[in-house]
């Protein structure tokens, strides 16, 4: 087990290194930079100072090592657009809102996804099953940013209860979280449902019934535990989709989060900002994947991690 975690940890570091390097290389190749535009007529000295300010005066290989060193400490230097501000400070100011939204979304997705999936499986081919599957198909079919906009157009403008363009109380979080969560809810519900249907036909469920256990005990203690195992594996991917979704949903609802900055930095070609956001999100994602793999190994005793994985 420890050997597996160690090995997996090393691979995580390699993946992190790859994403940092790829980001660096891509951004060096990216066309245009805010520094090229000197409509005010930048003097040679000013340009040189500017280059030094962004560490662009050194050879590329030195820039790379500097960058690698700074990335480890999450120090990404000053922004190219808001020149007086450090990228890390800007990200730190947006992080709380993004984190809140992300957590609310994740909790909402996991809890309602599992509940819907279980109910659908227990009432297989009954009304609630069809309703759940219908919700699931809708959740997968309508892109999250379209949902967000539809929510504003058809719900927010009609009911004052759901304010937009602000962030503060829990009421601000409902609609954006719902728009972000519906895709993951759909995926979790479908997966839970099909796993439950499979597990419920197993012999040990019959045994449990024969022992005289209550339905609740059978479902929660025997069926659900096994049905939820595969769901754990997709959590990493879901978190990634919530991240990327939050870029646009934050923009649509005007939530002052990291996603807003990211979208702005793309439009403004603010490379330090793009790099920083990419690396932070990738890091969180890669760490999530690592945790998911390890947790999966711990909760499913049938998996022998030290054996070669297929």
């Amino acid at each position: 087990m420890l050997k597996f975690i160690g090995k997996r940890f090393l691979w995580m570091l390699v993946t992190l290194w790859v994403i940092i390097t790829v980001t660096f290389v891509l951004m060096r190749f990216a066309p245009g930079s805010p520094l090229d535009v000197d409509d005010v007529g930048m003097s040679e000295q000013a340009r040189a100072n500017m280059m030094a300010h962004y560490n662009l005066d050194q050879p590329v290989i030195m820039q790379y090592f500097n960058y690698l060193k700074n990335a480890v400490t999450f120090d990404f230097g000053p922004s190219m657009v808001t020149r007086s501000r450090e990228v890390s400070d800007m990200l730190a100011s947006g992080f709380p809102a993004s984190l809140q939204l992300g957590l609310v979304t994740l909790v909402l997705a996991v809890i309602s996804g599992i509940i819907l999936g279980v109910l659908a499986a227990l009432r297989h081919n009954k009304m609630i099953d069809y309703v759940t599957m219908f919700i699931a198909i809708i959740g997968i079919s309508i892109p999250n940013f379209i949902q967000a906009m539809l929510f504003i157009q058809y719900i927010s403008t009609q009911f004052d209860f759901f304010p937009t363009a602000q962030w503060g109380t829990w009421r601000h979080a409902i609609l954006p979280a719902l728009a972000l969560a519906s895709g993951p809810i759909a995926i979790i519900a479908r997966m839970t449902r099909s796993n439950m249907l499979e597990v419920l036909t197993e012999d040990y469920i019959k045994t449990a019934k024969a022992k005289g256990l209550s339905n609740f005990q059978i479902v929660v203690k025997h069926a659900l535990r096994n049905a939820l195992l595969p769901v754990v594996t997709i959590l990493g991917v879901l978190v990634a989709s919530i991240f990327t979704g939050s870029f646009v949903v934050e923009r649509i609802f005007a939530i002052p989060g990291v996603g807003q900055y990211f979208v702005e930095s793309i439009t403004n070609r603010d490379y330090p900002m793009i790099m920083a956001t990419t690396i932070i999100y990738s890091t969180i994602f890669i760490i999530m994947m690592f945790i998911v793999d390890v947790v999966y190994g711990i909760i499913d005793p049938r998996i022998q991690l030290h054996k070669k994985e297929e």
Binding site: T15, A240, Y281, M289
Partner: peptide
């Protein structure tokens, strides 16, 4: 493939689009 699989898909696409235009 394992290393590439560990990267967030859409984020990489966004990054590539920034570079390629």
């Amino acid at each position: 493939v394992d290393v590439l699989y560990g990267l967030p898909y859409l984020l990489v696409v966004v990054l590539l689009m920034v570079v390629m235009g």
